[in-house]
Write a protein that binds this DNA or RNA. Structure first.
Lengths: 228, 228
DNA sequence: TTTTTGCATTTTGCATTAAAAATCATTGAT
DNA sequence: ATCAATGATTTTTAATGCAAAATGCAAAAA
């Protein structure tokens, strides 16, 4: 039986373990996106009944999803009083940025040691697309590509735990950071910092890249702090 | 009614916001402990019905708890096929140790800058108790205090995000690390490394402490790798 | 004897429902 | 008029029930 399945899979090109996501898993993704996109704003109360209707699922899978999102730090659960979209406090944002900066600095060390030319070219490509959005003043798309650059660097480190932890932390303050880039001068500086990052990456200079990433995070804090 | 409660709380010494943890929250803690203590061994299948009986709760809160534990990385959920206690792969253990080392190194920087004498004395106290357990060859208690030292250092950094993330990551490989300390010579070396850590901490030498912590993690990998 | 196919049992996934808790509004007392 | 208390409504929590899927076993065919 296992043999037959293997044969079929090979015939189909090795993919397809037949992806069957469970409902609660689907709901986690959907609600997470709603929060990150800002449809569910920070501080907003999350009403079980409403969301269930909106998503077309019953309350059990939704409740399971809310528990997971709470453990990711995106939602705050108040026992017997429902759920709220978490609004990170300023100290928490600072703490998160500090940790993110350190993780990316670690990633820098690993990437410079092991990434191939193709990998680095890939990051550069994202960067170029980002510059394009900057030129067109497409803030939303710019922002998404910006986050992609950071995620890509961390992913190329080859350390999956690092990548997963980084992305979870990044998601928590995504919303706040988006708001932080509103001022034109801030935006300008952020782009310049990214230029430096890419240059350091292409030079495979781990120390320089680490410095750039840490600095980028510190500056992100400056940009974000008055948006709080 | 609220007034009366407040009065009682004050009379009892300011604690007790009337701790009413929801059931699923309680279940998360209990099951997490069962995994970390090794009662639920890595690779073991987690049967909903059995656990429900054992814990005396119905399936709904248990299922919610399993989702949370899965997002913490302690449990693996196989859709329609139940849950398993996650057995970290060797690369995952290495990756986790790498990240933990870096986080503790970051903590070192922060701690040396801001911790008071009392704080450091507290860590030293845990360390001394740990040495005592080492002398008595009380492996379990030694191990718990060992983890406490690391958690304390990270907590004293004052960065709550760092502390929380660190502890979650630490929990994932707690079991494996416990097994790694079985060989007497390994145990000996680990104790020596802790001595160095404490010395560096008391000297408030952040670089030295960072080096010690990273080295400690690398050595932990050596100790653990053949236990896999 | 080995493999395969169909059936029975077990187990999970989700919805519904019942119970507990909180919020809100109204009423009565000071 | 204000505040507290009580009851009604809403909302969350947790248990139960039902349907779908997987596992294991046995019987039949190669």
């Amino acid at each position: 039986m296992a043999g037959e399945t293997g044969g079929v899979n090979q015939a189909l090109g090795e993919s397809l373990p037949i992806i069957r996501r469970s409902l609660h898993d689907e709901v986690v993704s959907r609600v997470r996106d709603l929060i990150i996109e800002g449809v569910l704003a920070p501080g907003a109360r999350v009403h079980e009944g409403n969301l269930c209707d909106k998503l077309g699922v019953s309350r059990t899978p939704l409740r399971e999803a809310l528990k997971v999102l709470a453990s990711e730090g995106l939602i705050e659960l108040m026992p017997n009083r429902g759920a709220m979209v978490r609004r990170p406090t300023p100290p928490e944002v600072l703490d998160t940025l500090t940790v993110l900066g350190e993780m990316e600095a670690l990633a820098a060390k690993l990437v410079c040691a092991r990434a191939g030319d193709a990998d680095i070219a890939e990051v550069r490509a994202i960067h170029m697309r980002m510059l394009d959005c900057f030129a067109r003043r497409d803030r939303l798309e710019y922002f998404k590509l910006n986050q992609s650059v950071h995620s890509a660097i961390v992913r190329l480190s080859g350390n999956r735990v690092l990548a997963a932890t980084h992305d979870t932390l990044q998601a928590r303050i995504k919303r706040v950071r988006f708001l932080g880039n509103e001022r034109e001068e801030n935006w300008h500086r952020a782009v310049a910092e990214h230029e430096e990052m890419i240059a350091a990456l292409e030079a495979r200079d781990a120390r320089r890249l680490g410095r750039a990433l840490r600095a980028h995070m510190e500056n992100a804090w400056q940009r974000v702090r008055d948006a709080l």
